[in-house]
Nucleic acid binder design. Structure first.
Lengths: 244, 244
DNA sequence: AGCTATTCTCGTACGCTGTACGGAAATCAT
DNA sequence: ATGATTTCCGTACAGCGTACGAGAATAGCT
């Protein structure tokens, strides 16, 4: 029945047991590719053309393989996405051990996460739709929990804290990328559409029903996203202290 | 050329100018439906069967209409999703004016948001993929900014604060729903798959490479999600105070 | 060396999606 | 009544994930 772990077809029906699979068939035709190279190709596409451009056909084409060949390595596209997430999680640089200053460590982790998400702009969207725990992701979690040990909280609470920070980074970068993309397309559009947008906001504000929001929009020029990020991050970390 | 605002085909090419459109053609065949009823039907489908079940065909079928008829009301599916978000945002109960205790108000808003997302479990996913500002959403933002006025921060900073809270709620509920769904399917599965999952985690822990994570998993039984939510929320609000 | 079991390879095909197109039908202004 | 305008929607198409199964390639056994 060909049940046990192997990259063979139908492998990894269980989403979790996927990670446990050794890449060793030992009999039969040797594979021409590997899960890692396939994943890397998928990541390259996503980086260059967005998550929507990651289709099984596109990935296969990059490898010079037939579309259906991918299914020898991966049970379905969903799994490929999980592999992508874990692969880029491997880029996270982890110090050998926590410094002892958990606040500094947490800041460091959050900055690293933000940098990762900016290198791979598809990551926030991919993450929010999925609940994944591959080895690389797990390594980051483990490091974070260790870094938080000096807070004296139990492991469960530390996991919550870390999730809180991660959630913050995800939503911040999502917003950040959304803004960048919006102003980018706004600059590129012929003017007609750009004006319509401006007029819409103008009309909204002129209505006088949203004075607060109008004020927020009218605020002086962009502060650097880094500065805002750091400030919000510090606020969050402060909040954690308050109770601990 | 039929350019000006109207529900007609091609209307609302600009994502923002969509909201400004009056629903008054005044000439020609009168519409058999309305944007609101179409949106409501789409929301009903998403609530019952998930976001993926919201297809143009399915929505049209519910209305007893032809699929392509929808395109008289909505330029594309993406827009329909934005309308869905704004429609459920309208469920947010807003007091006439802030109480003066911004901390209490913020807590209230966050709880309301969480409740909304639990009523409409597709909402977190829909939100993270989109950057929308319909009238109902805007009303909530306006209220939140007003509620935060006593902090003394400028409007921009208050908007950041509110976004921070919203981001937190989104990621918390995402996690929460993910957990519920996971344990639900785990209970329903025939046992084989369930065991595999358990064995995977067991093996992971037995490896001894993730002592912190193991400890987090081994923690005593579930505290209520409400309690955790409230606790984390308080932490965040505390954090905001620290600097302000 | 040959056989067989096992595995990878991938062309074809199916059902599903969003939506472009264009004719028919319904209504309003004249 | 006529023409302009709008809605209605059947048909069609490209692109998606992937089920199926025939063929090719390899390893271990005899």
């Amino acid at each position: 029945m060909a049940r046990a772990g192997s990259p063979g077809r139908k492998a990894g029906v269980d989403p979790e047991l996927l990670w446990a699979q050794p890449e060793r068939p030992r009999r039969g035709r040797p594979p021409a590719h590997s899960r890692a190279t396939i994943t890397a190709e998928a990541v390259a596409i996503a980086d260059a053309e967005g998550l929507a451009a990651v289709t099984m056909r596109a990935v296969a084409a990059r490898l010079g393989a037939g579309t259906m060949s991918l299914y020898s390595y991966v049970p379905n596209k969903e799994t490929l996405l999980e592999l992508m997430i874990d692969q880029v999680s491997g880029e996270h640089r982890l110090p050998d051990e926590p410094s002892g200053d958990w606040r500094a460590d947490l800041r460091q982790i959050a900055r690293e996460q933000r940098a990762m998400m900016r290198r791979h702009p598809w990551l926030p969207a991919a993450l929010t739709a999925r609940q994944t725990l591959g080895p690389n992701t797990l390594a980051v979690v483990e490091h974070a929990l260790a870094a938080l040990a000096p807070t004296g909280e139990d492991a469960r609470a530390r996991l919550e804290t870390f999730s809180l920070i991660t959630g913050f980074v995800v939503s911040y970068v999502s917003y950040e990328l959304g803004q960048e993309q919006a102003s980018e397309t706004a600059g590129r559009t012929s003017g007609e559409l750009r004006d319509a947008h401006a007029r819409y906001l103008q009309a909204l504000m002129a209505g006088g029903n949203h004075p607060q929001f109008a004020q927020a929009l009218a605020a002086p020029g962009d502060p650097s996203p880094e500065a805002v990020f750091d400030r919000l991050l510090d606020r969050m970390i402060n909040g954690l202290t308050a109770e601990a």
